[in-house]
């Protein structure tokens, strides 16, 4: 394996103290190579989103280390880190400021990081995610869920990051819209050489998007396997097999 773009080592996150203490993430570790798409799957409450929040620095009360290109990420995270690592949130209905025009939302990262040619970059970012430039002059309530999520992706891309953290980016969207956003994310990764860490509870989404997958339950990563192993149900751990079976049953029920 080449030098990892992102590596987490012995990551542990706990909430509360004493008797109310919950170990949300317990000694998790994985490495993601540049340009790779790494998936984390598990039921809700398994700690997968907590890992993303720890990597991004939204929660920097963690033990262990987060390494970007072999160097520990600073705590609290600095601007240089955010320039490199961006995140797309689960719910596009809450991740865009309801009172701000899309243009203002997209302008913000450019102002903070003092980029030039701002209007040009915004128009380019919108067209990269498949939206017309006029969308800059709308408010979030004038957009559909899929359009909002595309705006959220555009916002993350504006800083030209190398690593994207995707927190269930399609689970709040209609099934008909999901495929469009997933394909967009795939295209962007290939054309820009982005590294993805994607969290989902949907096996199909993960299998479609990721080459390697970590399976999480109760804060622990129990198994790491390739997408091919997942498709051929070549799992070693009982929990992973249960997860696959449960997902097949759910699929059959649909």
């Amino acid at each position: 394996m080449t030098a990892p773009s992102l590596e987490i080592v012995n990551l542990s996150v706990a909430f509360g103290s004493d008797r109310a203490r919950v170990q949300a993430v317990d000694n998790a570790g994985f490495r993601v190579a540049p340009g790779e798409s790494f998936g984390i799957i598990g039921e809700s409450g398994s700690g997968k989103s907590t890992i993303l929040r720890a990597i991004s620095g939204l929660n920097d009360e963690y033990d262990g280390s987060v390494l970007i290109d072999g160097r520990a990420a600073p705590r609290p995270r600095n601007k240089a880190f955010f320039k490199n690592v961006q995140m797309v949130f689960q719910d596009p209905y809450s991740s865009l400021h309801p009172r701000r025009m899309i243009r203002a939302t997209l302008m913000e990262p450019l102002e903070i990081h003092r980029f030039d040619r701002r209007d040009e970059r915004i128009a380019q970012a919108l067209s990269d995610v498949g939206l017309a430039p006029e969308f800059a002059y709308r408010y979030p309530h004038q957009l559909s869920g899929g359009q909002r999520q595309r705006v959220a992706v555009a916002r993350a891309l504006l800083l030209e990051p190398r690593i994207m953290l995707l927190d269930e980016p399609t689970s709040a969207l209609d099934v008909s819209v999901q495929a469009g956003v997933l394909n967009l994310l795939n295209t962007l990764r290939l054309s820009r050489g982005l590294t993805y860490v994607m969290v989902s509870h949907d096996l199909r989404v993960i299998a479609h998007m990721c080459s390697r997958i970590a399976v999480m339950t109760q804060g622990r990563i129990v198994e790491e396997l390739s997408a091919d192993d997942l498709r051929s149900q070549n799992a070693e751990q009982d929990y992973t097999r249960e997860l696959i079976t449960a997902s097949r049953v759910a699929l059959a029920a649909e």
Partner: peptide
């Protein structure tokens, strides 16, 4: 949170 992650 999204704005914080852009360095605001």
């Amino acid at each position: 949170a999204a704005s914080r992650l852009q360095g605001a």
